[in-house]
Amino acid sequence: MSVDSVFVHKMWNDHELSRMVDGGVPFPMLSDGGGRVGSVYGVYDPDAGVEMRGRFIIDPDGVIQGYEVLTPPVGRNVGETIRQIQAFQHVRASKGTEATPSGWRPGKLTLKPGPGLVGKVWEVWKPSMESEENP
């Protein structure tokens, strides 16, 4: 979503993005003229008249689970977004009984918060496990 019109979105897709991705952009490219939606989400910069690089993860109930906002010159990390969605999906499937430690990936150790785990996380998880899990 950006403040550009759908006509400019089409030109960008047809002339550039479809040359990076076979078949072109596979999801709707949304137009937010005037930044009205971006204002509600807190990412519209009225001085510049554009939206910042904001990314929101919204769950099946329509609840915002996470967001990230970057200034224009730095691009996002799609792999990290997917990792976060996988973690939110895992937690949701566990009905909130499990939590995913930092850098968690599917299949890796999760934590089951409770009185017995207080002060004992060091016995089962160390920061080195994150780097092992993310070579």
Binding site: M1, P28, R53, I58
Partner: peptide, 26 residues
């Protein structure tokens, strides 16, 4: 929105039941 050769009107709440990534860019 522009979506695969057509212009469409998208409503966020139509996607309830699915995970959605909403991205803004300059």
């Amino acid at each position: 929105a522009y979506f695969k050769g057509t212009f469409v009107q998208v409503k966020l709440s139509d996607y309830l039941g699915k995970w959605v990534v909403l991205c803004f860019y300059p």
